[in-house]
């Protein structure tokens, strides 16, 4: 374990290099370029807003901001994990030519997603100004919440990156998980709209807790409940530890499967 960490430290410069080149490659030959990363969540926001405020008449205060915040948090998770999923397979040429720690592509995917969420948060700020919404002082707590979410993303990303090399099925299974997760997370509804028995199960989902906590600190100016914090920290640490163990088991042989 120490050797993995030492190697990581030596090649840390490449983490950001990978993250930046990933963004460049992603938006190559496109006119809007990196702006696409903003257009996509905004379009989703538009659709969800029309459907749920006019057709279903949800009455959630500050609904556009509520929606956008949820979409941004969810996108952070979706982007980070799906970038990581293909991070090793996309670099097969490099990996079979030069040795470097196998964790780097998966971790740099988390950095790529972090760069993207910063842009999205700026858009959220613009929305707040446009709707005349002044956030409470607890908004500052969004930073540790997103940091905790980054830990979750990295914990899921590392095993996904190596598993996808060995079993191509990982990619298809993960896309189902991400789709289902979007509906099972309180992004366009409030968690207490769910029946109790559903709430009892879903409260173990780290993303449910992350999004709920984000709503609390940004919209209501209340501290997240101690339960939320415990559930989130507990489930995320468990996922990260298991994820790291899976990664460690597969990482040595991963090149030979390419």
């Amino acid at each position: 374990m120490t050797t993995i960490r030492e190697e990581m430290w030596k090649t840390k410069g490449i983490l950001f290099n990978f993250a930046i080149t990933d963004l460049k490659i992603r938006y190559r030959n496109s006119i809007l370029g990196v702006l696409w990363s903003l257009v996509e969540p905004l379009l989703l926001l538009g659709v969800l807003f029309v459907v749920f405020s006019t057709m279903f008449r949800f009455e959630i205060p500050n609904f556009p901001i509520y929606l956008l915040l949820g979409i941004i948090c969810w996108n952070f998770f979706k982007n980070g994990t799906t970038f990581a999923l293909n991070s090793l397979t996309n670099r097969s040429a490099l990996i079979t030519q030069i040795y470097f720690p196998r964790a780097i592509p998966g971790l740099s995917a988390g950095i790529t997603a972090s760069i993207m969420i910063i842009f999205e948060l700026v858009v959220l700020g613009i929305f707040m100004i446009a709707f005349g919404f002044s956030p409470p002082s607890t908004v500052i707590l969004l930073i540790p919440i997103l940091a905790l979410q980054l830990l979750l993303i990295l914990g899921v990303s590392l095993p996904l990156s190596v598993l996808n090399v060995k079993y191509k099925d990982t990619e298809f299974i993960w896309s189902v998980v991400v789709h289902a997760g979007f509906f099972l997370t309180p992004i366009f509804y409030q968690f207490d709209m769910m029946p109790d028995y559903v709430q009892n199960v879903l409260q173990y989902s780290p993303m449910v807790q992350i999004v709920t906590m984000a709503h609390h600190v940004v919209l209501y100016g209340t501290l997240p409940s101690i339960n939320s914090v415990l559930y989130a920290v507990g489930s995320i640490s468990a996922i990260t530890v298991i994820g790291y163990l899976i990664f460690r088991k597969f990482q040595a042989k991963v090149v030979e499967e390419m």
């Binding site: 490659i25 040429a93 990996i95 030519q97 030069i98």
Partner: peptide
């Protein structure tokens, strides 16, 4: 095959 160059860079 080179040094693992990425075709898009």
């Amino acid at each position: 095959l080179g040094l693992g160059f990425h075709p898009e860079l």
